[in-house]
């Protein structure tokens, strides 16, 4: 029964995160939303992995790996947001890429 709670909580977290990722324009909040989604998935994974009540080592190993991956992705994303904010003064994405206004290529 507890497992079901875990799974349901995970599902709720994924839903919240998905909403944030789509609806919130601020980039830091989007990164947090992404982490929320990731955590929800890992929670669900832990619950789903415990098949038939027998503890299963594999999901736990995978979850730890996944957390590390998510952490490094978040770190890179935050770094990019900071760099963007330093250059443009905003932590939002410009609505469209100004493809043809840019004279000099990088």
């Amino acid at each position: 029964m507890t497992l079901t709670y875990y799974a349901l909580t995970g599902a709720v977290l994924v839903g919240l995160g998905a909403y944030g990722l789509l609806a919130v324009p601020h980039l830091i909040r989007r990164i947090i939303a992404f982490n929320l989604m990731g955590s929800g998935l890992f929670l669900f994974f832990g619950a789903a992995g415990a098949r038939g009540g027998v503890p299963d080592a594999i999901p736990q190993a995978l979850i730890i790996t996944g957390i590390v991956v998510a952490l490094s992705a978040s770190a890179l994303a935050v770094g990019l947001v900071v760099a963007l904010a330093r250059r443009s003064g905003k932590a939002f994405l410009p609505d469209d890429y100004p493809a043809d206004d840019e004279d000099r290529a990088p």
């Binding site: 992705a73 994303a77 250059r87 443009s88 410009p94």
Partner: peptide, 24 residues
């Protein structure tokens, strides 16, 4: 993001959002 311009960072972030959503 390597070219270090504001556009490059914005483009990289947009890429990242798609990539992360895809991964999840």
């Amino acid at each position: 993001a390597l070219s270090g311009t504001a556009q490059a960072f914005a483009a990289a972030l947009r890429y990242m959002i798609f990539a992360l959503a895809g991964s999840l």
